[in-house]
Design a protein around this nucleic acid. Structure first.
Length: 107
DNA sequence: CGGGTGACAACGT
DNA sequence: AACGTTGCCACCC
């Protein structure tokens, strides 16, 4: 049984809408655990495949892809993000206008 | 118990 | 822009 904190992270990630992406730090905040970005990485690494989480919608700060360039995970993430219409520029995911609107509307 | 590691972030240089 | 530090914390020796 995974700790509640990890499950909270899984829940947040599962809710990231198609065509959007969220940074590790932001996922942590949304899960009520500010400053615990590393736990998000841990939680994703430990996530059972059966959950089928949209892990590729989680990026580093500012849309940066966390996996090392050249790794299969890196390529896989780019492929899946692009498949959802997210543009990648200079190794970072670019938010679409709709995402900016979402941010402006937030809390 | 102590130290190293890591799908990170924020800041400093 | 590219590193180095520090904060963070669960895990694994």
């Amino acid at each position: 049984m995974a700790p509640a904190s990890v499950q909270a992270i899984w829940r947040v990630v599962s809710r990231i809408p198609r065509g959007h992406f969220v940074s590790y730090g932001e996922v942590a905040r949304r899960a009520g655990m500010a400053r615990r970005a590393r736990l998000v990485g841990y939680a994703l690494r430990k996530a059972p495949a059966e959950l089928d989480l949209p892990w590729f919608r989680v990026t580093g700060a500012n849309g940066r892809i966390a996996f090392p360039k050249g790794s299969t995970s890196h390529a896989e993430q780019l492929r899946r993000l692009r498949r959802e219409g997210i543009r990648i520029e200079r190794g970072r995911a670019v938010a679409r206008p709709a995402d900016l609107d979402a941010l402006l509307w937030k809390p």
